[in-house]
């Protein structure tokens, strides 16, 4: 340290900011980087298939890939639209 340190601006050194930004970014990137190459196409086809049967917006379907050690999971989440309550059926009791 020298007496000139006294005049230097206080606050967080830029290297600390660099480390923190990298740690946050890489935690996110590592979880997605492991995804297989076919994932985007699979995602598209799942969306097409679901919308063939149910009227849902694209953003109501999420396909999420996660890798935890030796197990990889593919999570498909479809948020179905609220169903109109079906009209009570008349039942005949013979």
């Amino acid at each position: 340290m020298s007496i000139f340190d006294f005049f230097r601006p206080r606050g967080q050194p830029s290297a600390t900011a660099a480390k923190e930004r990298l740690q946050i970014l890489l935690a996110h990137e590592r979880s997605t980087a492991a995804a297989p190459d076919y994932l985007p196409k699979l995602q598209r086809e799942i969306i097409d298939l679901v919308t063939k049967y149910v009227q849902v917006a694209d953003d109501k379907i999420s396909v999420h890939y996660a890798n935890a050690g030796s197990v990889s999971t593919l999570e498909v989440n479809v948020e179905l639209p609220v169903m109109e309550p079906a009209a009570p059926m008349r039942r005949s009791f013979g």
Partner: peptide
């Protein structure tokens, strides 16, 4: 001077 990532930072990441 805190202007560059140190060895330990890079190793930790």
């Amino acid at each position: 001077r805190g202007e560059m990532l140190k060895v330990d930072d890079v190793l930790e990441i």
